[in-house]
């Protein structure tokens, strides 16, 4: 007796098409509810609202594709953001150098996660639970829990906009889209990208075919760390400050985006573009519900329901195989 949901062939393909359908459905619904929803300016705003979670989600997707998980991404990003801004403000080093230091720090955190996972064989959940706390504490000690303000213009430049017709688009959202294009290319078109899928799909088979699975994992965690650094740049640019309290909701928001995007938490299935769709779905719901005057608590409630629906779809489509 096949479980009820599995009797519908469409349900089995929902893992790949579902996120886009959900996004289109949400857009249609909100367009019918608010005349202000369907405008270029509003979509540009949604992109700006999701760009930090979006770029963090790239690293999260990479790690989840290898059947791992990263609980530390938001904290690592916040550390990178504070480091960039504090270095630029306190020591007076040039903005590019400050950014480079921030990127190096978040990448280092990723590499440390990767080393603990591959060399010490710890589960990614535990490793990143540890680094979550470590990154948070270092950040508080380093910053004295003080927000860094009066940032040089260079650090906030990504928050500036340019006009396309009558729509103002931020450079930051363009950077997010470029980061997605690059990671999509990496995962689809290059050998290391396919190896990441293989490691998540069947680690033993990957090892037996001669893939250096630990090197793949280390590369993935390092690259994820780099993406958190890019997210840190966007966070600084968007808020205009280096905030040591940032990143706390982003930790789990990235997992929400990955799951809504149809990537399997069991590894080996999914795509980074799905995560972009997932992040935009959350953004669209928040934006649309706000336009409708729905209080933010209900927005959280709906996000929770969406996540459970997405994981259910994943489970059902897995059983279909």
């Amino acid at each position: 007796m096949t479980p009820f949901l599995e009797r519908f062939p469409l349900v089995r393909h929902i893992g790949t098409l579902g996120p886009l359908i959900a996004l289109l459905g949400a857009c249609l619904f909100f367009a019918s509810q608010s005349p202000r929803f369907l405008s270029g300016q509003n979509f540009s705003l949604i992109l700006q609202q999701v760009m930090v979670v979006g770029v963090l989600g790239i690293g999260q997707t990479l790690i989840i594709l290898t059947a791992g998980i990263d609980l530390s991404c938001g904290m690592v990003m916040a550390l990178g953001a504070v480091l960039m801004s504090k270095l630029a403000v306190d020591t007076g080093i040039s903005v590019p150098l400050a950014i480079l230091c921030g990127l190096a720090a978040t990448t280092l955190f990723g590499v440390i996660n990767g080393l603990l996972v591959t060399k010490v064989n710890l589960p990614p959940f535990i490793v990143t639970l540890g680094t979550l706390n470590i990154a948070f504490a270092i950040n508080q000690i380093y910053s004295g829990a003080q927000t860094v303000t009066d940032l040089p213009d260079g650090l906030t430049a990504l928050g500036n906009t340019f006009s396309l017709g009558d729509v103002a688009i931020s450079y930051g959202s363009i950077l997010m889209l470029l980061a997605y294009a690059a990671s999509w290319f990496l995962l689809r078109e290059t050998a290391p990208g396919r190896h990441a899928y293989a490691v998540g799909n069947n680690p033993e088979a990957a090892r037996l075919t001669g893939i250096a699975t630990k090197r793949v994992l280390l590369f993935v965690y390092g690259l994820a760390g780099l993406s958190y650094g890019v997210a840190a740049m966007l966070s600084v640019a968007r808020t205009g400050v280096g905030d040591p309290q940032a990143g706390q909701t982003e930790n789990l928001d990235t997992i929400t985006a990955v799951v809504l995007g149809g990537t399997s938490l069991f590894g080996g299935r999914g795509s980074v573009l799905g995560t972009l769709v997932g992040a935009v779905i959350v953004g669209v719901f928040r934006n649309g519900l706000t336009l409708m005057g729905v209080s933010s608590v209900y927005q959280i409630l709906i996000t929770g329901i969406l996540v459970i629906l997405a994981v259910t779809a994943d489970q059902v489509s897995r059983k279909g195989r």
Binding site: R194, A198, N201, N202, A205
Partner: peptide
């Protein structure tokens, strides 16, 4: 020892 979610062509050339 195959990666089930990957294509036949990808599995044939996996690691090489």
């Amino acid at each position: 020892a195959v990666a089930p979610a990957m294509t036949i062509a990808e599995n044939l050339f996996l690691g090489r």
